[in-house]
Design a protein around this nucleic acid. Structure first.
Length: 277
DNA sequence: TTCCAGGTGCATA
DNA sequence: TATGCACATGGA
């Protein structure tokens, strides 16, 4: 996909491999909104990007275009990725439906905190809780709030998180903030997916599913397949012969089948299942 | 009222 | 190793 970076924007040429709606509504990110004009606004750490549709594609307007070049994974050739995925029969319809999905490369700390909140929760409420967290603890920018840093969140008590609506996950947040910081997470970049996964699962409130989401949406590891309630439904639908498998077994089978493309396959299937088709 | 949502931790066998 | 249950919260 062709794109061009200038001082305060990125021009995307073509719409087939970049769909703001599909990228943002496919459940990998919670901090975005649809503005009054109909365009999307995305928030990541202390940064903001606005995405406008043009005749030939899209424009990402931001103060830090190179940050969002990486964030939107623009250097990866999704046409080639999709060509690889289309070898799988069950992905044909989901890919057609979710064309233009890209896996975001999100901030590690923000992704970890966000997906701890996501456990056994629904997307609307996750967004609500995270927005409250920004407003309560994050730095005020012009017109929005930055995602709070670890240092800012260390000031929060368990009761503070409960007041945001985090429920029983409040104690997990409180604990995790005292076990990792942004630098530790960066240091983990060099680890293999397997060791990194073990590190993440050792954290409070992080099990197999949350770890896989952080691995995929933060660390950019394509060789994981997060299994949640929607993927369980998907599995029942597309592999009806295999019933009553544990999530661990489902995860094993799917990563075995899709290998390094697991994460990408997962996003198309997740988005497709949630659409109700 | 019960079920469900991008599940995890913990006790038990 | 695997199974079962509790856990906050709010919308359907």
């Amino acid at each position: 996909m062709e794109y061009k970076i200038s001082k305060n924007k990125i021009q995307i040429f073509g719409k087939e491999d970049f769909s703001p709606e599909h990228i943002l509504e496919c459940g990998q990110i919670f901090s975005y909104e649809k503005a009054a004009g109909g365009h999307y606004v995305v928030f990541s750490t202390d940064k903001k990007a606005e995405i406008f549709e043009t005749e030939t594609g899209y424009e990402i307007v931001a103060e830090n275009p190179t940050y969002f070049e990486s964030f939107f994974d623009l250097q990866t050739d999704y046409a080639a990725l999709k060509a690889g995925l289309l070898r799988y029969e069950i992905l044909k319809e989901p890919i057609k439906f979710g064309h233009g999905i890209r896996i975001l490369k999100q901030d590690l700390f923000e992704t970890l905190i966000s997906f701890i909140v996501s456990a056994n929760n629904n997307i609307k409420r996750i967004q609500l809780i995270l927005n409250r967290m920004r407003e309560k603890f994050g730095t005020k920018m012009s017109g929005y709030y930055a995602f709070p840093t670890r240092k800012q969140l260390l000031a929060a008590t368990e009761e503070d998180f409960s007041a945001l609506g985090a429920g029983y996950r409040s104690k997990y947040l409180f604990k995790v903030l005292r076990h990792v910081n942004e630098d530790v997470l960066q240091d983990w970049q060099i680890l293999s997916t397997k060791s990194l996964r073990e590190k993440l699962i050792s954290l409070a409130g992080v099990g197999p599913k949350v770890a896989d989401c952080v691995l995929l949406f933060g660390f950019g590891r394509g060789d994981v397949f997060p299994v949640d309630t929607w993927i369980e439904k998907m599995y029942l639908r597309f592999y009806p012969a295999e019933k009553n498998l544990s999530r661990e077994k489902i995860r094993f089978n799917l990563t075995d089948e899709f290998g390094l493309l697991s994460g990408y396959a997962q996003q198309y299937l997740f988005f497709f299942m949630r659409s109700g088709l």
